[in-house]
Design a protein around this nucleic acid. Structure first.
Lengths: 251, 251
DNA sequence: TTGCCACCTTGATCTGCGTCAAGCGCGCGC
DNA sequence: GCGCGCGCTTGACGCAGATCAAGGTGGCAA
């Protein structure tokens, strides 16, 4: 008995609100610079980054790159949501992460990408030539330090995700996921409580190591137990955040 | 019908073979320096690192630190095998990684460790004060670069592990695990084919998101199918590596 | 040598989640 | 305005792996 629909939120591709005093597309105008690896750069560094970067826009479900492709670029997400995932030859998919404004993407010490990347919503990114990154980081150690910090943060998140995938039940996984989305939303200054859930049930399932059916049933049950509410436009209200936290971390 | 026992290999705690020309415990004498973050250091850098580091020895199953503890140190593994893991309050455990000679340990941008670390076999490590690391990396950008490279490599491995935990069957997980151990052994110059498996079935289960029983049954079945042989002292022969590869990556 | 204990293996049974199947509702294209 | 299709939900059923239980075996201490 469905009562509220879970409609994919259709975010129209609008330009990021530019900061006053910078021309659109410039780093000075970048609304999310404080979230990115560019945050610690001085004006000279920003000018250099700006010279080396180009803008990319993706429509929803458009591919940024595929696993195994030559890794020629690295990216900063400036707007929208992406997913990164790995595939097995028979089609089994594991989404290893969702990326939001401020996230860095493309680090790989191999010559090819270790995962595919695809837009979940319309998205914008800053693109750099991989072969220019070494020099850039050498000239701007503050940026390299920031990148290392981001990488170690991601490593901690990856371990949290391994705990989820290896040891949590379906309900616990979905509760953990909603809390993660909410936390990340507030980190980047978006609304954390009715939390936007822009990705499909299939994407969520592939992120949580479940099937869409099980994800759907878990949502239904969390709703039935009064822990969450499913709102229109793919938003979810965390009615009882405390109970969600307990469920996510204790069982 | 057991025919070969899977005995924990008991590695006596012997000092690492020192390089000729360096006093024991010195970086010049470090047999695994080429594998560590110290690899790119020049003699002056090595001298500095040596001043800042102390040696730690652990017996098998001894704890290095616990999740949540104040993160005062970072480490280089120089000898032996460690495991790192996270726990849920009810005791469910996820081993998020096994560490071998050359591995770096303790990166965290929080003030506390995000996981626990415990010796699997007797082990030795180089220990640094966390608060001295920033300065060290600033003075030795080649070391910072190396650390970033290690971190991004770990990130790729973490994604591979998420694919395993989220989407592979028990058999596929065990095959993947044996191949991983073998690859890592050859990377650090150890024997890759009869591959040493120093950790218990329980540790393997907690790494693969399974139970000991399922791990044991998977080993038995892989043996029955002629893909592996269980040798004494916890060694495993990868009789049909090709078939293992297929199983691990294709299903 | 003996006995204990930790670890491993194997068997029987149970169950959470996957699989298969069907129906609903919204958005979109015609 | 209408119907088609995709994404979501719900139900019935099956199965891979968990759980429960019972040995086997080798290392080690006394």
């Amino acid at each position: 008995m469905p009562d509220s629909k879970n409609v994919r939120s259709v975010v129209p591709m609008k330009p990021a609100a530019p900061r006053p005093g910078g021309r659109p597309g410039s780093c000075a105008a970048c609304a999310v610079r404080g979230l990115t690896v560019c945050a610690p750069l001085n004006p000279a560094g920003m000018a250099e980054v700006e010279m080396l970067s180009t803008q990319v826009a993706l429509a929803a479900s458009e591919t940024l790159f595929d696993e195994g492709e030559a890794a020629e670029h690295v990216f900063n997400v400036t707007e929208g949501t992406l997913k990164i995932f790995k595939l097995l030859p028979d089609g089994r998919r594991q989404v290893t992460g969702f990326l939001f404004a401020g996230d860095f993407l493309g680090l790989a010490n191999q010559q090819t990408y270790a995962f595919s990347a695809e837009a979940v919503t319309p998205a914008r990114l800053c693109r750099f030539q991989r072969r220019q990154i070494d020099g850039l980081l050498t000239r701007h150690p503050e940026m390299e330090r920031r990148l290392l910090s981001k990488a170690s943060h991601e490593l901690a998140e990856a371990q949290e995700q391994m705990l989820l995938l290896g040891r949590k039940t379906a309900r616990e996984r979905v509760a953990s996921f909603l809390l993660l989305l909410s936390r990340r939303a507030s980190q980047r200054g978006a609304t954390a409580d009715p939390v936007p859930v822009p990705m499909s049930r299939t994407d969520i399932a592939d992120y949580l190591g479940l099937t869409t059916e099980t994800v759907s049933r878990s949502f239904t049950r969390l709703k039935g137990d009064g822990l969450i509410q499913l709102l229109p436009a793919g938003k979810v209200a965390l009615t009882r955040r405390d109970a969600l936290e307990t469920l996510a971390t204790a069982g």
